[in-house]
């Protein structure tokens, strides 16, 4: 198993290099003089020149790239012009908010997608199958931000069930002491159950918005993989051996359907990392997506560069995790690498 992880980590290195190159290129396509831009609006010719040297912008492209890599190695993602802080500090503060939102959405998408998919496979054209195709059709045609706004309009403005969609917690509550950065978990750890409930209420709409788009694809892939597995020879053997229905369904059926589902989950996660920006924007969620968009709008580019790096790195990590789980589930994969 460690061998599998080692191989996959090695295989991820060229990807990482490519990602750093692209992040580098994205900032180089900035129009105008980058040094003048980074020196800020009040810069003089002297400070611009000083900035140029400090950022290594006076060298060749290769030198600049190496300087950039050197910065990254030191954990320096540059400074944000608008907040005046190192980007890495702003990110560290806001990343938990983004992760809490995205991971809950991912969990709900996986659970919902699998349940709908298995239900649909047990009764093709049945009620569950119909529900799954409606959810999936909506997910494909409705833009993320529009769905978020509709949910806000219905559940906040009309029904008044949801709290005001402005961030992680209404200003009337005191946030929990940060331990994990996941406020729901921190609230539970500190025994503040009323706060936990409020946090869940606040999370509900953005999580549903984000999860919605993952449920459809996961349900669809689960359905077809389950149909294949349930009609397989080994499920017939399990039935002939008199095993329990539950055992046959999950241990013999689903276990053999899980690999395509896992791969779809990787795709869904990629989509969620992107859609996250839109959802944070709609719900005023104080994560790195909303932070980056704010930065872009005032022409503050260091956060953008950091943002695409961090997101791509997260994506690599999740794919790695998926590969490891795949190898755990399917012994045949272990020998492929």
């Amino acid at each position: 198993m460690t061998r599998v992880i080692g191989f996959r980590l090695l295989a991820a290195i060229p990807n990482l290099v490519g990602i750093i190159v692209i992040a580098f290129i994205v900032t180089r396509i900035l129009p105008g003089d980058a040094a003048a831009y980074y020196a800020g609006p009040t810069a003089t010719a002297a400070t611009i020149e000083e900035t140029r040297q400090r950022l290594g912008l006076d060298g060749t492209v290769v030198e600049q790239f190496l300087a950039y890599v050197g910065q990254l190695v030191r954990g320096d993602l540059g400074d944000s012009l608008s907040s005046g802080q190192p980007v890495i500090e702003d990110f560290a503060r806001r990343l938990p908010a983004s992760l809490e939102l995205t991971l809950y959405a991912l969990i709900i998408a996986i659970a919902g997608g699998i349940l709908l998919g298995v239900g649909a496979a047990l009764r093709p054209r049945g009620v569950v199958d119909r529900i799954a195709s409606v959810v999936s059709a909506v997910g494909q045609a409705v833009p993320t931000f529009f769905l978020g706004l509709i949910l806000i309009f219905v559940f906040y403005y009309i029904l008044n069930w949801a709290p005001e969609p402005l961030g992680r917690l209404s200003f009337m509550y005191r946030p929990p002491q940060p331990i994990s950065g996941f406020w729901t978990i921190d609230a539970l750890l500190q025994g503040r159950f009323d706060l936990f409930g409020e946090l869940v209420r606040q999370l509900a709409l953005p999580v549903i918005t984000l999860a919605w788009f993952g449920i459809g694809p996961i349900a669809r892939v689960t359905r077809s993989a389950m149909l294949d597995a349930l009609s397989s020879d080994f499920v017939r053997t399990a039935r002939a051996a008199g095993l329990r229905r539950r055992t046959i369904l999950w241990r013999y059926g689903f276990r053999n359907a899980v690999i395509p589902v896992l791969h779809t989950t990787g795709m869904v996660f990629s989509f969620m990392l992107g859609a996250n920006v839109l959802v944070e924007d709609v719900f005023g969620w104080p994560g790195i997506g909303a932070y980056t968009v704010d930065a872009v709008l005032v022409a503050d580019y260091a956060p953008v560069q950091a943002y695409i790096l961090v997101m791509a790195a997260l994506y690599i990590v999740v794919n790695l995790a998926i590969d490891v789980v795949t190898a755990l589930v399917d012994p045949r994969v272990r020998y492929d690498s």
Partner: peptide
């Protein structure tokens, strides 16, 4: 192929945001 793989190594909308931001 490497370039294509690298593009696919990004969450696509994130990359789109980065490019659009960079291009003004």
């Amino acid at each position: 192929s490497r370039t294509i793989d690298t593009i696919m190594g990004f969450p696509l909308f994130v990359l789109a945001v980065g490019i659009a931001a960079g291009m003004g």
